[in-house]
Design a protein around this nucleic acid. Structure first.
Length: 491
RNA sequence: GGCCCCUUCGUCUAGCGGCCUAGGAUGCCACCCUUUCAAGGUGGAGACACGGGUUCGAGUCCCGUAGGGGCUACCA
């Protein structure tokens, strides 16, 4: 069992492509086969340098290992089409010699005129004599090689996902196999490569379905045994309108966050690779048992191309946020720390690793994205001496007023100062008692302290936070907050 | 325009003729819990596109219509 992912190196990797690759990879792994990466760089105009590197980075990050490819090598390489030109030319020539293809000398202008007239290429060179063809070639006219598509009859293709699909041959044109620059088109190249690389299952996006009959005819003309085909559904934009595009700005969510579409954007957005894998494999396929959270290893145990949903899907990006938070919650502190540290550093904080390890358990359940760590817990790593009391609108919580907040802060200080040990439990007990004595609700007391000490509306839990900050610093902050409240009263 | 594919809650999906008064998840809304956030718990609203068949019986099979997606390049 051998599957492949065969992208064109035209820039950053699109998540739609990654998902197609994922299905091919899962299938190969499920059956103990090989997963091959092949670069289809036959369009010289669109090829952008560095693309292969980006593709590889995406695969490495996700943990999708490649058995054969431009980096890995392999017995059936090279795995880059521009390095296999001779092969394509040989077989194109063979097809011409065997009457299955012909040289076409139509100029760009002629073609444009035909298109304008409607109907497309009119096969004007299909039946010219060998002598005439040779003559035109001898005169140095540029030409392409076109496939002689049967003019009548039906071609039926078998697709693993949707069964048999019928096409009337007359609907198809005589597709170009070899361009005038000597490069093959996709139609020719992928067949020759899939054959020579012994691909058993071709997975590709559904936009290839219309040219499936052409490919079947080429396989037949070549006399080769066809692999199995699965035309995969595609990802639609989050609103369900159109194929998922790279212009994701227009799909920014209510929170103003733009929707990640390119592979590297998932890294930048603070998603865990396991969450992304889970997310992607749960679109158009599902693990079963009403299980939403499953590992790649689990998916491998059950994946089958036959079970892929034939319908396209709107990109359910909101689910990724949820999945990511689930994965972060379940991750080990040891696993999270090295991921969080660079994010904090990039945000300008100097990270003490020991402190980070103490802090991570406090905020794990609050992170939807790794990137949330900076706004959520950055204050732990900031210069404490520069801490400023937050404004009144943060200090004074819901269902509280200025006086009440000040009362609570003022009353807490001596109690907190008196504590011999400053762990969270001890503080908690003391403050609970304080609430009881003063008649404030626990939440009012704890919440006011939270705001005073962290300066944030959303933060790690109050007492654990104060424990990390220490007695002296915590009290200092409460005093600062109290001071700013009083100043405001005075002003 | 022609051809092809697709169509279950807003969204991702389960369902492969009777187990469906259609299940799960997400999102949304309540309530509970709680260190008034988050997480967690409980509950709620929410779908078989429409019309014909076939069948004792249809979300499940067939046809049509509508809607969505794609292809129609010397791009992939």
């Amino acid at each position: 069992m051998r599957t492949r992912y065969a992208p064109s190196p035209t820039g950053p990797q699109h998540i739609g492509g990654i998902r197609s690759a994922l299905f091919a990879w899962l299938y190969a792994r499920r059956h103990g086969g090989q997963f091959i990466l092949r670069i289809e760089d036959t369009d010289r105009k669109r090829t952008v340098p560095g693309s292969v590197k980006m593709i590889l980075e995406a695969f490495d990050w996700l943990g999708m290992d490649i058995d054969e490819g431009p980096r890995e090598g392999g017995a059936l390489g090279p795995y880059v089409q521009s390095e296999r030109l001779e092969l394509y030319q040989t077989w194109a020539k063979w097809l011409v010699e065997n009457g299955c293809a012909y040289k076409c000398f139509a100029t760009a202008e002629e073609l444009a005129a035909m298109r304008k007239a409607g109907g497309g290429y009119d096969r004007r060179y299909r039946d010219i004599s060998a002598a005439k063809s040779a003559d035109l070639e001898a005169r140095g006219l540029p030409f392409v090689i076109r496939f002689k598509m049967p003019l009548t009859g039906l071609t039926v293709g078998k697709d693993l996902i949707r069964g048999e699909v019928e096409f009337a041959n007359e609907q198809l044109q005589d597709a170009v196999l070899l361009k005038s620059d000597g490069y093959p088109t996709y139609h020719l190249a992928h067949i020759i490569d899939d054959h020579h690389m012994r691909i058993s299952h071709v997975t590709r996006a559904i936009e290839w379905l219309p040219s499936f009959p052409l490919h079947i005819q080429i396989w037949n003309a070549l006399g080769w045994e066809m692999p199995q085909f699965a035309h995969l559904p595609v990802l639609l934009n989050p609103n369900g309108k159109g194929k998922l595009s790279k212009r994701k700005e227009q799909f920014a969510g209510a929170d103003g966050k733009s929707v990640p579409v390119l592979a590297r954007e998932f890294i930048e957005a603070g998603y865990l690779p396991a969450a992304v894998m889970n997310f992607l494999s749960n679109i158009g396929w599902n693990y079963g048992d009403n299980e939403e959270i499953f590992s790649a290893a689990q998916a491998i145990e059950r994946f089958d191309l036959k079970d892929v949903n034939p319908a396209n899907s709107a990109y359910p990006i909101a689910k990724l946020d949820w999945l990511n938070s689930q994965y972060i919650q379940r991750a080990d502190v040891a696993e999270l720390c090295p991921l969080l540290k660079p994010i904090l550093e990039k945000a300008g904080f100097e990270v003490d690793e020991a402190r980070l390890q103490r802090v991570v358990p406090l905020l794990r359940v609050r992170l939807k994205s790794l990137k949330d760590v900076a706004p959520m817990a950055g204050f732990f790593f900031a210069d404490w001496s520069a801490f400023k009391a937050p404004p009144a609108e943060i200090l004074i919580q819901r269902k509280m007023d200025q006086k009440g907040t000040a009362d609570i802060l003022r009353g807490s200080i001596p109690l907190l100062r008196r504590l011999d040990t400053f762990d969270a439990d001890t503080q908690h007990a003391a403050m609970r008692e304080f609430a009881k004595a003063t008649g404030y609700k626990n939440g009012q007391v704890f919440g006011s302290l939270r705001a005073a000490v962290t300066g944030q509306k959303v933060s790690p839990p109050t007492f654990e936070t104060m424990e990390v900050l220490g007695q002296e610093e915590s009290i200092r902050r409460i005093e600062l907050a109290l001071q700013s409240l009083s100043d405001e009263t005075a002003g």
